[in-house]
Design a protein around this nucleic acid. Structure first.
Lengths: 335, 335
DNA sequence: TTGTATGCGTTATCAG
DNA sequence: CTGATAACGCATACAA
């Protein structure tokens, strides 16, 4: 039903080629004819068929965004940055969400198709070596966000730096006994950012000749409840920590709940610091590490666009700085 | 680079038509030839070109999902339901996010293109009449989520019912003086669900011969801070309400903050009830109205698929029931 | 049952 | 500067 380039050509009394040239604003076309064509286009309310364009151009004008746990606030925030940047580039965003291993494998198997996408952005998902080979073969540009792979361009937030930031903040308050509540060190799905934050904490402590005691490190499932349980047992130990660093705000809130349950005052007897700066962190007054989430998305898109345009595929790792947001859950170490 | 249907035909020693028939699992093809073709397909690792398919079929195999404020928890949750259902139907999900009026208008202008999408799902966005006409002309099936338009199929949660649920819960606790904190009654962007919830509250109260006093209704911007300010002045009034119903959890938390600031005990002196049941509601112990968010997405997709398959375009309104989740912010009215 | 020709709407090539 | 014509890769009617 919609008008085709042929219709426009007929209406303007020119050839299809000319219309195409006008559409793509090529220089070599007479201003007068151009005007006539433009007029016909407007009159017929003509819009070029994306499908035909794709087929002819061999470009899809769309990029696949693979997310792990779409609903997590940090992921959505990144998605927002991506979408916004993509719009400016007139690129469609097709999102593929992953919640299970099966789906993960299926997605990474199906997605490297040059006839389907112009590029791939993977959030918190790193391809295995065989998957990488597959992607390589497809020739599709890839950019990783919050994921690491020596051979791929990636934009990440400074997880190690974030861990150090958190630890240093607490050290300045005079804390000496630290606890850490994190995710599984080696997650089945996704990326061990929790571990990197832990490493940052360790580094900062080491500079002060300190270390976290193994029994004050509890890692597991990414839920508030789990964090609460872990924390309760940790806080019941003899020489309990005076400060706990959580690998996410969700966990940190679990920590706060545990403290409340045990009647431990925060920040009087215990300082707590989270990670992510989600909305909830604000209203529980949680001190936390803030990441430029949306910006990672925008940066990734720009890298992607460069790659599509033919930029060298240097596996450059781009690290965005994080910052500390102090609120009401951290304070001086108890005497 | 990727193999074409022609390559497969050659490899299998058959015609392109036959390959196509095998691909689309048509009945009329000899089992032996079919096997041979299948083999060739596997050998060449052939995957049909989506672009060519689209052009030939005049179907894009993708649907546009328009979101208002992508990052809101309720929206993402709906998105998750949509994505999941779409995957099962082998349909791509292209997300278009709206944050400003300009963008809203641009999206609604650009999106009704049958050559680009097979269908439209609009979340919390209702087209104007001229936009609707445009969509009609495009012939694209549309399904609304959390939005109303007499002429369009839509799936919504029972906002009026939710308001009644909240009010009745409080009435049972003996409350008689109610407050309401909601969004703008007539939002520039999006949909007045807040108003519908308010209506529900009004209906429930009327059944008991009660009504909310105008000075106990405060509507405005969807932020916690704003809700807090509104609530503070409300709670300072002479005959302040003993129960406040908020149109969202975000607002409800603002209400809780206000109560804390003024030293008003919840639920002892004031009961508070929210709407949405976001994660934060759980850990602040907020009583709230829960909506089957992901399910609205799944339902919308199924409607969409039906429409694409040629189902009658009845503007049927599908209403999903909401439920009350009682936690720790509601209780008996103070004596 | 199977092969062939044609169309889908653009862009690109190549004469003119 | 411009108009015809050949891809692009698949589906589909039609013929065999």
């Amino acid at each position: 039903m919609p008008a085709t380039i042929q219709d426009v050509a007929r209406a303007a009394g020119v050839g299809r080629g000319t219309v195409s040239r006008v559409l793509n604003s090529r220089p070599n076309v007479d201003p007068v004819t151009r005007a006539r064509v433009l007029e016909a286009i407007a009159a017929l309310d003509f819009v070029p068929s994306a499908a035909a364009r794709r087929l002819s151009l061999r470009r899809t004008q769309s990029i696949a965004v693979v997310t792990l746990h779409l609903t997590r606030p940090s992921v959505v925030e990144r998605l927002r940055g991506i979408e916004s940047a993509l719009v400016d580039a007139a690129l469609d965003m097709i999102v593929l969400n992953i919640e299970t291993v099966e789906r993960r494998d299926a997605v990474l198997r199906d997605v490297p198709r040059p006839e389907r996408f112009d590029g791939l952005i993977l959030i918190s998902v790193a391809p295995h070596d065989t998957e990488l080979a597959q992607i390589r073969r497809s020739g599709l540009p890839v950019v990783l966000i919050d994921a690491h792979h020596r051979a791929l361009p990636r934009v990440v937030c400074d997880d190690v730096g974030g861990g150090m930031l958190a630890a240093n903040h607490l050290l300045e308050y005079g804390h000496r006994r630290f606890g850490f509540i994190g995710d599984e060190p080696r997650p089945t799905l996704g990326v061990p950012s929790s571990r990197m934050r832990f490493r940052g904490v360790g580094l900062a402590l080491r500079e002060h000749g300190l270390a976290i005691r193994p029994e004050h490190v509890a890692e597991g499932e990414h839920t508030r409840e789990f964090a609460r349980e872990l924390t309760e047992t940790m806080l019941r130990s003899a020489a309990r920590p005076t400060a706990i660093i959580a690998a996410s705000d969700t966990k940190a809130i679990g920590v706060l709940e545990a403290a409340r349950t045990l009647g431990i005052d925060v920040p009087g007897e215990l300082s707590v610091i989270g990670y992510d700066d989600v909305e909830a962190a604000d209203f529980v007054g949680l001190t936390t590490i803030h990441q430029p989430l949306a910006e990672t998305g925008a940066r990734a898109v720009h890298r992607m666009i460069g790659l599509i345009a033919g930029a060298a595929r240097v596996p450059l790792r781009e690290v965005l700085p994080v910052s500390l947001v102090e609120r009401r859950t951290t304070g001086p170490a108890p005497a």
